[in-house]
Design a protein around this nucleic acid. Structure first.
Lengths: 207, 207
DNA sequence: ATCAAGATAGTAATTGATTGCTATCTTAAT
DNA sequence: ATTAAGATAGCAATCAATTACTATCTTGAT
């Protein structure tokens, strides 16, 4: 009678991967804070208690999710930057790759910029800080290179520009979240980046 | 024995104001989603059930909070803009006023950019959208004026620049939230804005 | 190869805490 | 005396986590 797939018994490692995948999915749908272990269990046809065979704490699940995101995002960004002809081109390619990555995984910004940031849990908070500030440092470094090659204004504050870069992505994601589809995100991204770029580039006379 | 202040009974209107104030305070401390009506009651020396004498629903409290924010923020921004000499000066004054406002009320961005945005509750969601898109429209309008006065590049996409403007504030707030104090927010804001401004302004040769 | 022993994934039920919310009683202000 | 604010107590639901137990897989000695 039961047409169900025979319930396979998975190793802890496999289950952990599945839990991470499901947690990301659910976080995209209904927000990080409202995802319960019961939700995860339902989504993977498991009992709620079984989750705790593979993670001793719910927070540990989010930590694992963050590690997963960090690895994937950094891989994408590094690959994008490796094809660049100069530092500014690298930033543009990273920006584009980031937007594409977000379009494929709408949960990521929602996770990175969620209330998890403000939780006391030092491990999780520290991890998010590490990801974001590491990203900022990477952008700031590229901007310093650009300055040394006279591609960017030499009185540019690279760190502040990196803050603006991150904010630009945040703003785009939020607007896309408010006004709908993915097409909007990609299209808006293409229009916003030149403004940022112009803010970075060398100016001709001092003001 | 009891050295407590004699418990005054406040009118519904007064209590509503106090509930809003307390809700904003608590949201700043521990995040919107984790603020319970019990927390509010404790913070104002009241029983939890008494809250529902003045608001029929918890969501109604957040709606009232959003209306409060909208009124206060718009008043501050309008006042700042009224003293401006030109459109770009108006944007700079609004930016500065906004940062100051946030420094005084750290809960505001956390509320505006919270998961409340993604809730089904159409009233609340619609209100937040209204605030943000109204703000963007105001900035975009000023930028159009700036273009007509040749203060800004005439091929500037005003709407996209407004998105960048909002993102800039978001990014600053987030960085301040990550790395601590208010001093950082104000100081970073002063360094980031010129980059945005340079991105807006008229360029000398076309690329 | 076989089979008992141990390890491990999963279930079902339940724990104690906490959630938003309500019905009923009490007290203060007019 | 009337009325509305607040207190008290409790509700049904939900949360993360733990328990006792079962089913399945792996391993090692024979």
């Amino acid at each position: 009678m039961s047409q169900e797939t025979i319930k396979r018994r998975l190793s802890t490692e496999e289950r952990q991967s599945e839990i991470i995948r499901v947690a990301v999915e659910l976080a995209a749908e209904k927000g990080v804070d409202s995802v319960t272990t019961q939700d995860m269990a339902d989504a993977m046809q498991l009992t709620q208690g079984a989750i705790f065979r593979h993670f001793s704490t719910k927070d540990d699940i989010w930590v694992a999710v963050m590690l997963w995101i960090r690895d994937r995002l950094m891989k994408v960004l590094d690959k994008a930057a490796s094809n660049a002809s100069d530092p500014l081109d690298a930033i543009e390619r990273m920006f584009s790759a980031h937007i594409t990555f977000i379009s494929k995984h709408p949960a990521i910004p929602r996770l990175l910029f969620s209330e998890l940031l403000h939780k006391k849990n030092s491990k999780l908070r520290q991890l998010i800080q590490e990801i974001i500030s590491g990203y900022e440092a990477k952008i700031a470094g590229l901007l310093e290179s650009a300055k040394s090659q006279s591609l960017a204004s030499d009185d540019l504050d690279s760190k502040s520009a990196a803050v603006l870069y991150i904010g630009m992505i945040q703003g785009l994601v939020m607007q896309a979240s408010i006004f709908g589809g993915k097409r909007t995100l990609q299209q808006e991204a293409e229009k916003v980046f030149p403004i940022f770029l112009h803010g970075i580039k060398t100016r001709n006379h001092h003001g």
